[in-house]
């Protein structure tokens, strides 16, 4: 069960790029052991929000507190306990899997890197890939190696940007189950963006539906679909994408 202590507090985040507003006053909290999904059509502001939370982009206004600390004042301290995986980034393709994991284990100051790497290779069922060249892995293998990297430092907060994109249903299912397991057993908090409704239903305790940089709705996946009189979250997503639904509900 998610705790009540906020791990992450985003307060009135605004991000503008020139005259366009990518995020317009986004506020939310993420509790300990909670899994929160950010959902929205392309351009809704999910990736912008993720980039702000990772400190890759600075907000135009608003504040981000993680573990009770201001992100920009305590960036290094915070990042030691956070990790990230995305379908759109990669580990250096020209290194072996263990070399990549070893570099990141050292970057995150992991105490016994070899032991931790072996634990994760086993957990993700990729022990056989230890000496493979990272660039030769399939999409599913690559995602699991990226996840291994994201779990190296036993993060308290994990940010995942469409981690199951391009995975076959079997691997995607395994990844979702693993995340749930880690969340329950280790008290991991997860912020998750995805276009995959099954991911959202299975992984997320709570959901923020973004549209045009604003929060369209917030709640459990079922509650949100119900609120907009839609049969499912996917139906709502399509409705928003086609302009049939606005912030008030049905147009």
């Amino acid at each position: 069960m998610p705790g009540t202590t906020p791990i992450l507090e985003a307060d009135r985040l605004v991000k503008t790029f020139g005259t366009s507003t990518a995020l317009d006053g986004l506020s939310f909290t993420l509790a300990e052991s909670e899994s929160l999904g950010l959902l929205g059509v392309n351009g809704a502001g999910k990736t912008t929000a993720m980039n702000l939370l990772l400190g890759l982009t600075t907000p135009t206004s608003g504040t981000i507190r993680i573990f009770g600390l201001d992100l920009w004042k305590h960036r290094i301290e915070i990042l030691r306990q956070v990790n990230f995986s995305s379908a759109y980034t990669a580990l250096p393709s020209n290194l072996l899997v263990w070399q990549n994991l070893n570099v990141f284990a050292k970057l995150y100051g992991v105490a016994r890197p070899k032991q931790r790497i072996e634990e994760l290779l086993e957990l993700l069922d990729i022990t056989h890939l230890r000496k493979s060249v990272t660039g030769t892995l399939s999409a599913g293998e690559s995602t699991r190696v990226n996840l291994a990297k994201a779990l190296l430092n036993k993060p308290r907060l994990l940010l995942l940007d469409e981690p199951t994109a391009s995975l076959d249903p079997d691997i995607a299912d395994r990844v979702r189950k693993l995340l749930r397991k880690l969340q329950h057993e280790n008290g991991l908090s997860i912020l998750y963006t995805s276009h995959n409704m099954r991911d959202i239903h299975e992984v997320c305790d709570r959901l923020i539906f973004l549209h045009g940089g604003k929060v369209l709705a917030e709640g459990t996946p079922d509650h949100i679909a119900e609120k907009f009189n839609r049969s499912s979250l996917e139906d709502l997503f399509i409705g928003v994408a086609r302009g049939e639904v606005d912030a008030i509900g049905l147009k």
Partner: peptide, 18 residues
């Protein structure tokens, strides 16, 4: 550039690296 070419730059910039 090696980090850019291998799309590894984000991984480095979100790690605790000053």
């Amino acid at each position: 550039l090696e980090d850019v070419w291998t799309r590894n730059l984000l991984n480095v910039f979100v790690a605790p690296v000053r």
